[in-house]
Design a protein around this nucleic acid. Sequence first.
RNA 1: GCGCUCGUAGCUCAGCUGGAUAGAGCACUGGUUUGCGGUACCAGCGGUCACAUGUUCGAAUCAUGUCGGGCGCACCA
Length: 531
Amino acid sequence: MKQRVSTLLREKLGCEVVLEKPKDRSFGHFATPIAFSLAKELRKSPMIIAEELASSFDDHDIFTSVESVKGYLNFRLSEDFLSEYAAWALDNPTEFAKQEQNEKILLEFVSANPTGPLHIGHARGAVYGDTLYRLAKHLGYDITAEYYVNDAGNQIDLLGLSIALYARENILNETVEYPESYYRGEYLDGLANGAIEKFGKEIFSDESRYKELALWAKDGVMDIVVDSLANLNIHFDTFVKESSLYSDWDRVMQKMGDGIYKKDDKVWIASELKGDDNDRVVVREDGRPTYLAGDIVYHNQKFERGYDHYINIWGADHHGYIPRVNAAVEYLGYDSSKLETLLSQMVSLLKDGEPYKMSKRAGNVILMSDIVDEIGSDALRFIFASKKSDTALEFDLAEFKKQDSSNPIFYIQYAHARIQTLLSKAEVSKEEINSATLKNLGDNADSLLFDALLLPEIVEDAFSSRQVQKLPDYLKALAASLHKFYYDCRIIGTDNEAKLLKLLLVVALSLKVGLSLMGIEAKDRMSREED
RNA sequence: GCGCUCGUAGCUCAGCUGGAUAGAGCACUGGUUUGCGGUACCAGCGGUCACAUGUUCGAAUCAUGUCGGGCGCACCA
């Protein structure tokens, strides 16, 4: 819709035109301050320019009026245009808000270490990534969702040790001394018991076998992780294991050429020359590669697989890591501007105004699965998608358990359910609804129709700006328009019933598609839940 | 100390490629159709857009600085 208008204006005026949302719907559907920027060039007052431009639009089928107000140009779309577009959308619901793209994108997200269940911070990155993924898919991108499994390095050794310690203390009833760092949490119980079946209890007392224990256990942890993501409606296309990459290390190192050098018996990457604060060690004196080495091989592999664009979603605490990976990508001979790293910030939780207590059972973290159990996947996804991912977020669980308009997910679902209820009470036939024309509906209905038809540009904008919160914001506003309309306007039993129900079908379509892009299924009925 | 980031209504946050009177939700207060789910709607209250200077016809938005919060600054992942 917006595209159509801006294309038209570009042709007509011969330059790019910035289209905005007018301050107030009474001004029209779209507005542009173009007269202000032309004022200098033309040496005329913006008001006069706007007047002249407005009058040059005498008649055009997509606009019903073009007005100049205080230097702004305000456009109002015609009923013909809106009704035809709406009719098309209803006839082609699976095409609505879609586009054709030919870009191939690799999106890597979550990538939590397989050493324990996901916590609430991971959940945010997961929701952000999956929402982007859904948006991109809908927009026609060829996008792959990938999980990088850090199944090598110290943390895996630590996993083996942690299981053994847990088992010795809780199953073998031994007194154990805990080292400075180790993993804790209920999940170790399942792993320890699984290990007994697989290896027998002896393995816990034989330190030389901890590695073996760990290599077995990491798959079990990944199963836990994958299951918990599935509960959030999140699925990955590909998993890449860090352990599978190191065989390629020598070749990749050579590929980096001058970017790599030896000093003090270690191998370094000259990342400082590429904008990093310092050069970084990639291979230690004892020959063990650092974490960065793994990531270098991994990114090389990504680029060799050949995508047009690469997106990483990392926890914000890793932001200092971006320059060194970009440096490596450059040394590998690739364009680091194709690699985009997005950040997801910390989350702090409240419950009824008090800080949410981390449970000892969980290992002093807030488990993602606990929150899903508490408020459900839909609410969790909605909250996380609602806030800009790179700013810290604090929210109160209680707000999302309420069954009224203070709970945005409830409010939106209710709007959708309300429409379904009306349809079920319709006194006109489906055929009458389908063949109705969305004209002469009155201002309120026109306005609602326009709101519902905005979904495509919201989807486009949310993805291209990577600001997924624009989608839930829009859905909230659309739900509000619907509720208001419902209140203001009687539908069933009126002369306009078929038209109005058709209008509501368009609203329901946008709500449903919008929710599905957030991984949430629209409800047809609200059930009253008893506390 | 250095880097990144944030600072907008009592609370949680939009708005930020500069543009029409600064927005929404929550909370609080008051109200609502002799109608389709009042699980809704409307209104009121509430802001020197952290502070200062600058650029501009115009700044919450850009620049510089100050103050305050968060996060980084590993041969750990």
